[in-house]
Amino acid sequence: MTTPSKSSSQRRAHLVQLAGDLFAEKGFRATTVREIADAAGILSGSLYHHFDSKESIGDEILSAFLEDVLAGYRAAAASTDDPRKAIEEIVRSSTATLSRHRAALTMLQNDWAYFSAQPRFGYLRTAMKEIEQTWVEQLERGKETGLFRADLDARLIYRLLRDVLWIPTSWQQSRSSGWSAEQINDGLLRLLFDGITA
């Protein structure tokens, strides 16, 4: 028999998923509490039994996403002393994590200016700094050991790769690319480490 607490927890998770889908489709600011409640088939007031505000739902979606991203990055960095292998693991971890959190990624892409200006979401900037630092440290280590080019601009490369890593998620979302996540990862890593010249 299902316990009330488990049922409540499942209902809450369902509401978060519905809200995330709406936030990704319409934008966080444009989505109303009433629309979330309508999608769930409940009255607006009933939503407040689970969350005190729309921001609380956004908070849950974004914090879970960033915790997942950072866990993967930390594990990748700790798994090896080889910067190339660490970056390979970061890329694979990123793709897997982004596929699990498509709504959060879309929310950040579409409403970053809003979230980053709100004190409640101050952890976003902290997390993004750690993500950047993880990449930069691996790239700089590769430069120091002679594995990567000495003239590499680590922060620029990070920004380029971060943005490229968002693309496979939209490809997979459309289901029309014909490439698996593994094929996309391998293509990106070959481009990064081997280039396109013969």
Rank of each mutant, 00 (worst) to 15 (best):
R175W: 03
H50F: 15
A64Q: 11
L98F: 12
R175C: 13
R12P: 15
T145C: 09
A24T: 09
T97L: 00
T97H: 03
I131Q: 07
S44H: 02
H49N: 14
G142H: 02
D21T: 15
F193C: 08
L147R: 08
L47C: 10
G122C: 13
A104Y: 05
R190M: 06
R120I: 15
F148S: 05
D163L: 15
S99Q: 09
F121P: 12
G20L: 11
D151S: 03
S46D: 06
I57V: 14
F115Y: 08
S170L: 10
W166F: 14
S5Q: 11
L18W: 00
A77L: 02
L98C: 02
I184L: 13
S94G: 00
F121W: 09
V69A: 00
A76Q: 05
D21A: 15
L22A: 11
R159Q: 10
H101M: 05
L66H: 11
H101Q: 03
Q138A: 03
T145S: 12
L70S: 04
Q109E: 05
T169V: 12
S63G: 03
L105H: 04
E144T: 05
T126F: 01
G72K: 03
I184G: 07
Q173Y: 11
F148Y: 14
D151N: 04
S93I: 03
A40R: 07
T2W: 11
D38T: 14
L43N: 10
N110M: 06
E35T: 08
T80C: 00
E88R: 02
F193S: 08
R100Q: 06
F148P: 07
I57L: 15
A76I: 00
S93V: 02
H50Q: 05
L62Q: 04
E130I: 11
R162M: 12
R34K: 11
T106P: 02
R12W: 13
A154S: 13
D82N: 13
K26E: 12
I42T: 04
A154E: 01
V69E: 06
V164E: 10
L108Y: 10
F65N: 06
S79F: 00
A150D: 11
A181F: 03
S44A: 13
E89F: 03
W166K: 12
A39F: 07
A117W: 08
L47M: 09
R29T: 13
L189N: 05
V91R: 03
A181M: 11
I167N: 06
S180F: 02
K54D: 04
R74F: 01
R12V: 08
E144H: 07
S7G: 09
S63M: 12
W135Y: 05
